[in-house]
């Protein structure tokens, strides 16, 4: 123990808490690692395997690119339709789930439940569920994307509704407008930017989601990707990956543009 002790930034208690937490972290990490039963020979050969894969992928199959145009368009369709459906459905859910517009406690609980349940189930699981219900195809994909997005959209729209300026609502009421007119004139303009922002942002996310639901047969480019991988057509795989990259960047650009357009 030297005088350096006085330099310590933390109180002894804080230090003990930190040590305990660090220890817990280490224990959790070790326990987790052991629970995974990783075979170390696989781990060791992983880098070579990856290099091998990359070598087999290059160069991309250029001729194949025309074949993937239509699944790519389908992917965008799924994202657009799914988002449109989600946005429509999330308006009533948001009205239920916002403290200032909810009709009663039960409605609020229902709204909150829909929001958290739909968000907690990944899009691929929703896709499986809808494939069970409707059989494989785009329809299952659209519904999966839509249902998964309801919670996200409703949550953000509900937050926007909670933040509206009540003064504007009162002013319109004071002119003798009825409640529908008040909603159109005083509430809608206030949540419009959030609404557009949420829709386009979610559409952007949904484009990514639409690229993978094909793995379980719910349409889009994922079907092609899955097939190419299963038949070890690695050059095609690279072509598809590049196409996905392109479409993802495209959607990011479009969504950013639209959000800038609506203030």
């Amino acid at each position: 123990m030297t005088d350096y002790e006085t330099w310590e930034r933390r109180t002894p208690r804080q230090r003990i808490v930190r040590y305990v937490l660090t220890l817990l972290l280490v224990v959790a990490a070790v326990a987790s690692w052991r629970a995974l039963n990783v075979r170390y020979n696989y781990l060791g050969s992983a880098p070579t395997e990856f290099m091998d894969l990359v070598n087999r992928m290059y160069p991309p199959a250029v001729g194949y690119s025309t074949e993937i145009v239509s699944p790519l368009i389908e992917t965008v369709h799924i994202a657009v339709l799914g988002t449109a459906l989600a946005v429509m459905l999330s308006v009533p859910v948001a009205l239920l789930g916002a403290t200032n517009t909810t009709p009663n406690k039960l409605g609020f609980a229902v709204g909150k439940f829909i929001i958290s349940f739909t968000r907690s189930v990944n899009v691929i699981i929703w896709a499986l569920v809808f494939v069970i219900i409707f059989g494989s195809g785009t329809l299952a994909g659209v519904l999966a994307v839509a249902v998964r997005s309801i919670g996200f959209c409703s949550k953000l729209i509900a937050e926007a509704i909670e933040e509206i300026d009540p003064g504007q609502v009162e002013a319109i009421k004071a002119t003798g407008a009825n409640s529908v007119e008040t909603a159109i004139y005083a509430i809608a303009p206030q949540i419009k930017p959030a609404f557009i922002g949420v829709s386009t942002y979610r559409w952007d996310i949904n484009v990514r989601a639409s690229t993978i639901i094909g793995f379980v047969g719910a349409g889009g480019i994922g079907v092609e990707l899955n097939t190419a991988i299963n038949f070890f057509q690695w050059q095609r795989v690279l072509t598809i990956l590049l196409a996905i990259l392109g479409i993802v960047i495209f959607s990011e650009f479009v969504s950013a543009y639209l959000r800038r357009k609506v203030r």
Binding site: A171, A186, P189, Q190
Partner: peptide
């Protein structure tokens, strides 16, 4: 009845985005 009473507010209460 409200149509017959025009109201003017301290914070203006305009619909800002319109």
């Amino acid at each position: 009845a409200r149509r017959d009473m025009g109201m003017i507010f301290q914070e203006f209460n305009l619909i800002e985005r319109l």
